[in-house]
Design a binder for these strands. Structure first.
Length: 139
DNA sequence: GCCAACGTTGGC
DNA sequence: GCCAACGTTGGC
């Protein structure tokens, strides 16, 4: 199963709002970047991802699960843009900060470090396990 | 709030 | 198809 990372500014759409959506989940809409879209199209039902707070917070705060595969983004009529639905699975026991990730030699290849602006990123299985361990949270 | 880095757009 | 100009993102 593949792993991912979703970025959001907590002022716009934060972890608390995601949790409030419960099992139904929520459309991960508004993404207007091809690379991010390609990643979403590659997602399968049940894939899991990290939920990261950008701009303020700068930490991974929880785990989410894909609960609907790519479909038309309801916020636009443009057929180029589609998106998945995600739901909150569990919060991190200890949030993992960007600083921690940058300081960990095992995590230097993470997209979060290398391509800071990509808002939907793939995460390798190895990185997944390391970050979960740092957060004292089961994968 | 600033600004560097990056992605996208559009004129040629 | 190139590249300058522009807009947006995100770390600080």
């Amino acid at each position: 199963m593949a792993h991912w990372l979703f970025k959001s500014e907590p002022d716009v759409w934060g972890w608390d709002k995601q949790v409030a959506k419960g099992e139904a989940g929520e459309e991960w809409d508004g993404v207007r970047n091809y690379q991010a879209h390609n990643n979403m199209r590659a997602m399968k039902l049940g894939d899991r991802g990290f939920f990261y707070h950008s701009r303020s917070g700068l930490e991974i705060v929880g785990i989410v699960e894909v609960c609907a595969e790519a479909h038309q983004d309801s916020t636009t009529d443009d057929a180029r843009w589609d998106c998945v639905d995600i739901k909150a699975v569990r919060p991190f026991e200890t949030p993992v900060t960007l600083t921690q990730i940058k300081e960990d030699p095992r995590l230097q290849d993470m997209a979060l470090v290398k391509s800071a602006r990509l808002s939907v990123q793939p995460v390798t299985d190895t990185e997944w396990d390391i970050v979960c361990a740092l957060g004292n949270t089961k994968p």
